[in-house]
Amino acid sequence: MKAIKKLAKVEKDKSITIKLLPFKPGSKVEVIVFPAGKEEDVFSFMDKVVKEKKIAPMSLKQIEKIVHESRAVK
């Protein structure tokens, strides 16, 4: 599942509205809200690390294989 990042402004009644989401009407979604700031979010940070280190994209199956292999080493 891909995360969607939206920047929203809190209204006077302390609510926000998020429009144009790529989900079907009636879909359940999880919403996590935190203040925007100058700090870099984890997604941007990891994108930068991957590009700087030239890490090749991997599938979940490839990552799973690495995890299982590393757990088997004693």
Rank of each mutant, 00 (worst) to 15 (best):
M1K: 12
M1D: 13
M1A: 14
K2Y: 11
K2G: 12
K2A: 14
K2P: 15
A3M: 10
A3V: 11
K5Y: 02
K5L: 06
K5P: 01
K5S: 12
K6P: 02
K6Y: 02
A8Q: 07
A8M: 07
A8C: 13
A8L: 09
K9T: 14
K9Q: 14
V10M: 05
D13A: 04
S15K: 13
I16H: 07
T17Q: 13
T17F: 06
I18H: 04
K19A: 11
K19E: 14
K19V: 08
L20P: 00
L20S: 15
L21W: 00
F23N: 07
K24M: 09
K24P: 05
P25Q: 10
P25Y: 04
P25K: 10
G26R: 01
G26K: 04
K28I: 05
E30M: 08
V31P: 04
I32N: 12
I32C: 04
V33F: 01
V33C: 07
V33E: 03
F34L: 09
P35I: 04
P35R: 13
P35F: 04
P35N: 12
P35A: 14
A36R: 10
G37N: 02
K38H: 05
K38L: 01
E40S: 01
E40Q: 06
E40Y: 00
D41V: 02
D41N: 13
V42H: 02
V42S: 09
F43C: 02
F43S: 05
S44Y: 00
S44D: 12
F45W: 04
M46T: 08
M46S: 07
M46R: 05
D47Q: 07
D47H: 02
K48N: 04
V49N: 00
V49K: 01
V49G: 00
K51L: 10
K51V: 04
E52N: 11
E52C: 03
K53Q: 13
K53H: 06
K54I: 04
K54D: 14
K54S: 15
K54N: 13
I55H: 05
A56E: 14
M58I: 07
M58T: 09
M58E: 15
M58C: 10
S59F: 01
L60F: 06
L60S: 14
L60E: 12
K61F: 03
K61H: 05
I63G: 11
E64W: 00
E64R: 05
E64C: 01
K65I: 02
I66E: 08
V67D: 12
H68W: 05
H68L: 15
H68E: 15
E69C: 06
A72V: 11
V73M: 15
K74E: 14
K74Q: 10
